[in-house]
Design a protein around this nucleic acid. Structure first.
Lengths: 160, 160
DNA sequence: GTGAATGCAAAACCTTTGCAACTGG
DNA sequence: CCAGTTGCAAAGGTTTTGCATTCAC
């Protein structure tokens, strides 16, 4: 169950709180991320946004994503050195990355317990814990295929 | 205490096991990573390797790093979309990234307990758990400075 | 009205690739 | 000997930047 999705008005307010304006481009990008739970890359966001706003540019997509990340409406997920992915689920969760098909899944994780496992040296102050799990997703496991080229075009279904 | 550092002979053997040759470049890169516990980037490895091998090229550095990663002598650490960093500590550990100075520290972490916290959906098989902790390191905390531009030139001391 | 955001193009950044020459086992 | 490795240069994918124009507040 995802609780963190905001209405247009809430989105506008959250942008304003951080000094950002609500523009058509930002609204389209945010709505698109709310509706597509498959963690698209900036380029995928660009392609989808262009359906609603044919004139939108890549630079604007990056600008919108940056604004939405900064004001806390979405989060950026970086795995390896592949293109960043974006996620409108702000509930606490971690990510499962399928080494077979490359899909990304949201996974529930009791973060308090994770926190307690890390033995920080004296004086260190943690602000954020990010857990990434790698493995084989149910679909790929069922297909019993050996590991092969990633198929990043396949979208991962959310699991939270 | 780091147990995973290999002698030259062990390194050669581990490379051979995966079908790689032991070359002067690979030996220099591996030794350099063993001696510098600050998680250098490929470019930093290049600059340091050039002191021993003035003719070494960036492409070769990447090739060496790839071979060393593949045969299990070093690991690659990717944070955000900054340049990959490399680490000769193969003991089980996670990473602490200082949001103030950008340094990377090895941190001991009881991974079995972390594993138990993630609630994988049925059919999902996990092979690897990667925990990244972000926060303020002891040095930056002591300086009591507000968060500012990262200073990636400052090397992080190992903490394991 | 005014500062912020957009769109375009060019550049930056990190990494990979193609290929001829060289070399380790 | 010969597949694997090196070094060079060029290209690749992702993201950022500069700047004139447009727009949100």
């Amino acid at each position: 169950m995802v609780n963190s999705l905001r209405t247009d008005a809430q989105g506008r307010e959250q942008l304003a709180k951080s000094g950002y304006r609500s523009t058509p481009q930002r609204r389209v990008v945010y709505r698109l991320l709310q509706q597509n739970v498959d963690h698209p890359t900036a380029n995928e966001v660009f392609l989808r946004a262009r359906q609603a706003l044919p004139g939108i540019s890549m630079a604007t997509v990056y600008n919108c994503l940056e604004a939405l990340v900064q004001c806390g409406l979405i989060r950026q997920v970086n795995l390896d050195r592949t293109a960043s992915r974006y996620c409108a689920n702000m509930d606490e969760h971690c990510h499962f990355c399928c080494e077979c098909c490359g899909s990304l899944f949201d996974v529930h994780c009791a973060s308090d317990a994770v926190r307690r496992q890390a033995q920080l040296p004296p004086g260190f102050q943690a602000t954020r814990y990010e857990l990434v799990i790698r493995g084989i997703c149910a679909t790929c496991a069922a297909e019993r295929r050996p590991q092969r080229e990633q198929r990043p075009e396949k979208a991962g279904a959310p699991v939270v």
